[in-house]
Design a protein around this nucleic acid. Sequence first.
DNA 1: TCTGGGGTCCTAGGACCC
DNA 2: TCTGGGGTCCTAGGACCC
Length: 436
Amino acid sequence: MLPPRFGLIDGNNFYVSCERVFDPSLRGVPTVVLGNGDGCCISLCPLAKGLGLKIGTPIFQVPDAIRKKIQVRSANFALYGDLSARIVSVLSDLFPRVEVYSIDENFVDVEGLKDPFATCLEARERILRWVGIPCCAGIGATRTLAKAGNKMAKDRSKRAANAGALAVFHATPQNIDALAVEDVWGVGRRFTARLNAEGVKSAADLAALPADHVRARYGVVLARTQTELRGVPCGDLELEEPNRKQLVISRTFGRDVLDPMDALTTFTTVACEKLRSRGLAAGALWVWLDGNPFKGDTFHASRAVPFPFPTRDTAEVLRAVRFLAKSIQDQASRSGRSVPFKRGGVGLTDLVRAEDRQADLFFGPDEKAERAMAVLDKINAKWGRGTVGVGSVGWRVGGARPGEKRVGRRDAQWRPTLKALSPSYTTKWSDLLRVR
DNA sequence: TCTGGGGTCCTAGGACCC
DNA sequence: TCTGGGGTCCTAGGACCC
């Protein structure tokens, strides 16, 4: 049997589990977490899934009878991010190398551990005790097998009473026939349909297909997945955070919006803050606006423009955004459009590390703007996002908390209100729990 | 008359991930 | 009334160059 080299440890129903850490009244009750503007379910506990709810279900489509049985929370990413970091710190004590794969998943290096299985069980115990999040783990000779093992552990422990002991699974090329092919990492909806059509139902079926057939019919990406299912690694842990190539902020508006400029300038402000906090500068920009496809309005228009020199100056990007947005609105009205927009976004692309920018005779960084942005970031870091801004853009990009004062020049009708946002228990002094 | 072939860059679209 | 958001990689085809 192939010795395991990789482990994958992830939090069960992560967002819901995070909400339950600080709100015990949710335990044992069907709970869902909603995405932007309290629109769709983005995390559900098994009890909620048992009521027929799925990830992506719009909450307004849920019948009242079921609505009454469930508890609902607005997504609170500050809380989830903080608990996620605590999990990483627990794992770093137990494993020589940890790859932070997503907010709720971490790959670990188990090669050379005396008993990888036992170490994963120990990790699960510690995370449950110290952070409060229940986890499952898979181990395997490749990252794809570790992922498969994780999924199988989850399925298995769901059905069992002694969930703890079953929460770790060692996947090998020989024991993955119980895993449906659509649950393999790298097999999405489209590939599932095509694979099923040729009789491939399980992970083991996929591993057994002729390799050149997979390569020719499905491409190199799935061919690598297949190789990994057979126990041959095609990649190692990625410990370095890769440099992002683009940074996108987009939202479905809380309601239909005729003038999207306020939304777009807010997205721009947030995007530029993120850009600077990561030490990056943008070589180009794109802006887009969509109609409401749920009302049969398929309007979509986008515009892009390069910067003469990679920038991280909010004011410069704002000027470009306004110009592009205006151009899209002109196009919309020229085509006789009087319908509102429902979605929009701002993307910063061709990102480079700010210190790698090469000034030449004609173009270089605007030193004055760079200093101004540095001061602005410092003030906002100390007093909170939106304390100072360029022009009168001062919105948080997320939704408003109930009763929160709205400031700003325009009516920010695009911004949805969050009705069920939990406190930021671990990242805001004012939201700390009190023990009497 | 003879209508090549390989390289690069860009873009759009498709597939996937959480 | 209310319909998630932020990413990556690969491929095919066109333009252009020598």
